[in-house]
Every structure is written in structure tokens, then in C-alpha cells.
Design a protein around this nucleic acid. Structure first.
Length: 577
RNA sequence: GCUCUGUUAGCUCAGUUGGAUAGAGCAACCGCCUUCUAAGCGGUAGGUCACUGGUUCGAAUCCAGUACGGAGCGCCA
């Protein structure tokens, strides 16, 4: 149930009936302050202006066409021409009872499902996943889960980097180890060390560097021996990624991997098509596309290079091939790219060119969902204490260890197995939530103490709130499914909780519209806080029968909403902590 | 140099697309455990939304400029 949508429709219809243009939006929002009601419509002033009417008079005219008596018990005009809506307690209670009847919390699936291709995570297989992959992976996964929940057809695409010059170096190093009869799988268990060793040879040993370059050529021209070696490397590297995904609780699997190499055979076709369309231009020996959209004020254009001098293809060429694949083979209605903000220009160019070249239908949406950098406390990109790039797996191990210390200190007589499990959930979710709860586009500072704190907008706070509700439900010893009866809203804290519970769908909607899970995080944090206040003020299990029944239903609704909301973010809940 | 992007409380962050008196958490201060998990709750204090001008009924939000920061910019991905 979406109150905002309901009110928007009703008020907009009333505005139209009162003489406004059909396109004039009602602009219904949750009210900023309690004295302004639960919702406010901000669209009256704008519409009145277009009609050259006094806004309060137009508000009055709108009210005369508006009947909200089923959902609101007060609708008033305020200030310059706001319409404030005070929802009816009885109606809220009925709606909440309705939510409880479905495990989807009465949130419907979309009437027209779209095929949404989501490009996220995309690690480079030459190295191990590091902290830089956290954002794309975690945010992308939350959006994917939410889109799927709403009934869209989601196609995950893990565009892993498995192709390019650096693989020559790695293959040359594998070759050398094999000659020395070293057990390769052992050495590859630490990709980071392997990469550094290979790099050292490449930089210091001319013969090695030459061999590395030969191997790149051999690889790209399909040499069987070389491909075998490469396959072996890729397989091991992918398994590393999968271990990290499993630890993180990310829904990416092998079938979602669509590597750069998969587009290799199509790259010449991309260039040919661009040539046929007269979009290509040779410049200093390279094949480029110059689009006036990317000119500066002097008229100089930043080109896209799709084929370099000597015939090699580039990053842009692969991405163009990927766009075509996603349109023509995957039938995308919408493609979301969760990729670092530094690549904004690149994606603007790819999208613009894809449209010009007809690689996508005009109605297909291509959206870059950029995100900022994870910073250290010094305000520079996050590094380990030794100054290196932080490996994601090591980071997650540390999170669990830190969580273990916290959890153990609070639960002295809990058995080891449960402690470990709680520490795992708290540790992992803290890292994920710290990332998810920030506006995706901004940089944020990585701080263990803040993310593992039980205070503020953190995973531990939400998990604790959930376990408190869960504990009540358990203690009530009531068959949850059979619990019926009215939800009576009497205390202010009950009302606040009831309204908040009815706003879940609004929060979910924001996640899929803008690819921004932090709206859902903010909602859940708000809900948890509202519940805590209710919990302190309104005894549940010790209340009289009817009140107890009503409050228990509010608690159950809170539990279901927190659990479902967190699951959409890819976060597990705990019944006890 | 050009092009993006950012600047909100001492710190970390929100701010629903232009709405009413700008919100949280931390840190500081004051309270609340013989009743459902105090890993909690209530309260006090803290702001020239970087600066200047503009647009209009109304600006943290839109436009222009200035200062400072970050990123990107022809053959890496």
C-alpha cells in the first residue's frame, strides 16, 4: 500500500476538477512536522500561479472537489496554500491489519514488469577483490533484490575483467613457475602476491616482458595452449570472487558472469558498423568517434577511441559491444551500470554513441549509477595500515573479529557457535550497511567504530531492534498466523509507529527509481527508532487483552517490515543477540 | 588549461527533485534499569547550508560568478 500514491492521485484529480491543467502535479510529500499532518500537498501554489489565481482560493476550490473522508479525518489549508492531510486512525489500523495477511506486506508487483539489466561488481580477475569493489557489489545487489521483489525481470551481469595486457604478464609468470615445477594452484591461492611477483619480473626482466607481450598476442588470437593456461587462471580467480560473494551474502553466481573476453569476437563488428554509419574518423592512426556533444567551449572534442593504431580494441569498444548484447540478446528495457563516478564521461560517451549508432532502441534507458570513493580517516582513499590496497576478504574477516569481541563481551554465557554466528552477521552487515546507508554519489569515510556502533544509523542498531521485537513475539507464545482483531491506535507512540509502518512501500519505490538503497536504510532506521520509542512507552505483553492484542500486531508488523527491508538490502536478521 | 563533481553543527552523515521554524548519530551536559533485551530510551546545547549576486509567492536545493577540494580529459581498463 502506498499512501503517497493514493493521495497524489486523489488530490491531482481534485485539482484538475477545480480547473488546473492535467499535468499539474499535486506534489504530495510526508509532512515535515507533526502539526502539518501526516502528508502535505505542495502542488497547489504552482497550479494556482499557472491559473493566475490566489493559491488559497484555489486550495479551497480543490478541497471542494476532494473527498478523503475514508482515509483522513482532517484536511486543511495552511500557510500560502498547502493542503495538510491528517490520516484517520481507524483507517491506519485497518490497513495495518491488511498488511499482516500477506508475506509481501501487501506490496503489489508492478503491472508492467521491465527487463532490467544490472551491471555490477565487475572485479578485475588479475587481482583479488579489494575495498574498491565493495560499493558496486553491495549497492548493485540491493537494487537487484528490490527490483526482483517488485516483479521486474532482472538480468545480473558481472562484467569481470579477464582480458587485456596484464594477463600476458600473469600467464608468462605461470609458465615460468611451471618450468620450475612449482605447484601453481598453491601460489594462486594468494592472487595479490602472485600479481606483485609477476609485475616485478615484468619490470626487471626484459626477456620475461617480451614473453608476456607475445602471450597477450597469442591469447587474443586464440592460441590453444595459451587459452588453457588462461582458463586455469580465470577459474581460480573466479573462485576467489565467489568465496567473497558468499561471505558477503551477495546474490551473484557463476551464471551471471559475462566477462570482457566474451565480447572479443564482436569487437570488429562494432567497428565495422560504426564505419558503415560514417561515424568513424581516423585520427593519428587510431579509429575515433567525434561527437559534438563532447566539445568544450573552444569546440575541441574529446573523442572515443574504438580501435588503436595497429588494430587493437579498447575498453570503449567492449562496452559498446556489451550495450548491443544487452539490447538485442537480453532485450533490456533498462540497463543500470553501478560503476565508479570517475567513469562518468566514459559512460556518457558510450550512451550517446550507442543511441547515434542505433545500438539501443530509443526507449531503452541506459543509466550510469555512479558512486563515490571509500575514504580513510585521513580523507584519502582507504588503505590498509601498511599503506596497501585493502583486500575485501581480509576486511570482512576483520569485521567479524571485531564484532566477535563486542558480541562476546555482551553475552558471557552464550555458546561459542552462536557467538560466532552472531559475530558473522553483525560484522558483515555492519560493513555492508555502512556502505548502503550513505548517499551513493558521495565519498564516505570508512570507520570501524562508527559502523559497529549500536548507536545511530547502523546495522547493529537495526539488528538489535529486530531481535527485541522477535523476543517479544517469542515470549508471547501466540500463534502468530492466527492473531486477529482490531489494531487500536490510542497512544501517540502507537500512532507514529502505525504511520511509519504504512510507508514501507514508498521507501522501496525510491530504491528502484534512483538506484539508491540509502532511502530504504533511512526508512528502516526511522522505523526502528519509532519502534524503540513505542517499546519504551507501551508495554505489550503486560497489557490488557485487547491492547495486548493490538500492540502485538504492531510489533509483528514491525518485525516483518524490518526483516523484509533488511533482506532487500541483502542483510540477514538475528532472532537473538 | 578544459570538462565534470563536491563544500550542510566540533566529527560522521541525511535532506523525497523549489515548500512552512534545515534533520539524525557521535562527542559535551542532564536524566531513566525490582515490569517485554539499558547493545536501549528521554532531554539540553550546538547552523550566516563555503562566499557574492540573480531567478520567484517561496532557495541548502535552480542560474551566474568567486574561493577551496576531488576526479576525468586520443590510442590502460
Amino acid at each position: 500500500m502506498n499512501i503517497q500514491t493514493l493521495l497524489n492521485q486523489r488530490i491531482q484529480a481534485a485539482m484538475t476538477a477545480a480547473g488546473a491543467a492535467e499535468t499539474a502535479p499535486a506534489l504530495v510529500r510526508q509532512s515535515a512536522k507533526v502539526q502539518f499532518g501526516d502528508y502535505q500537498a505542495n502542488g497547489i501554489m504552482g497550479a494556482a500561479k499557472a491559473l493566475k489565481m490566489n493559491p488559497r482560493e484555489f486550495a479551497q476550490a480543490t478541497l471542494e472537489k476532494l473527498d478523503l473522508s475514508d482515509v483522513a479525518d482532517k484536511v486543511e489549508i495552511a500557510g500560502p496554500g498547502f493542503i495538510n492531510i491528517f490520516l484517520k486512525d481507524l483507517w491506519l489500523g485497518k490497513e495495518l491489519a491488511q498488511l499482516r495477511t500477506s508475506d509481501r506486506l501487501d506490496i503489489g508487483e508492478v503491472s508492467k514488469p521491465e527487463t532490467v539489466v544490472v551491471d555490477y561488481s565487475a572485479p578485475n580477475l588479475a587481482k583479488e577483490m579489494h575495498v574498491g569493489h565493495l560499493r558496486s557489489t553491495v549497492i548493485g545487489d540491493a537494487v537487484v533484490r528490490t527490483l526482483e521483489f517488485l516483479g521486474h525481470n532482472v538480468v545480473r551481469q558481472n562484467h569481470v575483467g579477464d582480458w587485456g595486457t596484464q594477463f600476458g604478464m600473469l600467464l608468462a609468470y605461470m609458465e615460468r613457475l611451471r618450468e620450475e615445477s612449482t605447484e601453481i594452484s598453491m601460489v594462486l591461492s594468494d592472487l595479490e602476491t602472485f600479481y606483485r611477483a609477476a609485475k616485478t619480473c615484468f619490470d626487471d626482466d626484459e626477456a620475461f616482458a617480451t614473453r608476456a607481450r607475445e602471450l597477450v598476442v597469442a591469447l587474443q588470437s586464440g592460441d590453444a595452449e595459451c587459452l588453457k593456461l588462461w582458463d586455469e587462471f580465470i577459474e581460480i580467480s573466479l573462485r576467489h570472487c565467489e568465496e567473497t560473494y558468499a561471505m558477503l551474502g551477495v546474490s551473484l553466481e557463476r551464471q551471471h558472469v559475462m566477462p570482457e573476453s566474451a565480447y572479443n569476437d564482436d569487437l570488429q563488428n562494432v567497428v565495422n558498423e560504426l564505419t558503415e554509419q560514417g561515424l568513424l574518423k581516423e585520427s593519428n592512426g587510431a579509429q575515433c568517434v567525434f561527437m559534438e556533444e563532447f566539445a568544450n567551449k573552444e569546440g575541441e572534442i574529446t573523442p572515443i577511441i574504438v580501435q588503436k593504431t595497429g588494430g587493437g580494441f579498447l575498453y570503449a569498444t567492449t562496452d559498446l559491444a556489451a550495450v548491443r548484447f544487452r539490447q538485442h540478446t537480453l532485450n533490456a528495457d533498462r540497463v543500470l551500470y553501478f560503476v565508479d563516478a570517475r567513469q562518468s564521461l566514459h559512460f556518457q560517451q558510450i550512451f550517446t554513441l550507442s543511441r547515434k549508432a542505433g545500438f539501443v532502441k530509443p526507449e531503452t534507458q541506459l543509466e550510469h549509477m555512479p558512486f563515490g570513493t571509500v575514504m580513510g580517516s585521513d580523507g584519502k582513499p582507504f588503505k590498509t595500515r601498511s599503506g596497501g590496497v585493502a583486500k575485501l576478504s581480509a576486511l570482512l574477516e576483520e569485521a567479524q573479529e571485531r564484532a566477535y569481541k563486542l558480541v562476546a563481551s555482551k553475552n558471557e554465557d552464550m555458546d561459542e557457535e552462536e557467538l560466532r554466528n552472531i559475530a558473522r552477521v553483525v560484522g558483515i552487515s555492519s560493513v555492508k550497511y555502512a556502505d548502503l546507508s550513505k548517499n551513493r554519489t558521495s565519498d564516505y569515510v570508512f570507520n570501524w567504530d562508527t559502523m559497529l556502533s549500536f548507536e545511530g544509523n547502523t546495522a547493529p542498531y537495526l539488528l538489535y531492534a529486530y531481535s527485541r521485537v522477535a523476543s517479544i513475539v517469542k515470549r508471547s507464545e501466540i500463534d502468530v498466523a492466527s492473531l486477529t482483531g482490531d489494531i487500536n491506535i490510542i497512544e501517540a507512540q502507537e500512532r507514529a509507529l502505525a504511520v511509519k509502518l504504512c510507508q514501507f512501500e514508498e521507501a522501496i519505490q525510491q530504491v528502484v527509481n534512483d538506484g539508491m538503497p540509502h532511502f530504504l536504510c533511512a526508512y528502516l532506521y526511522d522505523l526502528a527508532g519509532t519502534f524503540m520509542t513505542f517499546y519504551e512507552a507501551c508495554p505489550i505483553l503486560n497489557a490488557e487483552d485487547e491492547t495486548k492484542n493490538s500492540r502485538l500486531q504492531l510489533a509483528l508488523n514491525t518485525a516483518s517490515t524490518l526483516k523484509l527491508g533488511l533482506s532487500l538490502l541483502g542483510i540477514e536478521t538475528l532472532e537473538r543477540m
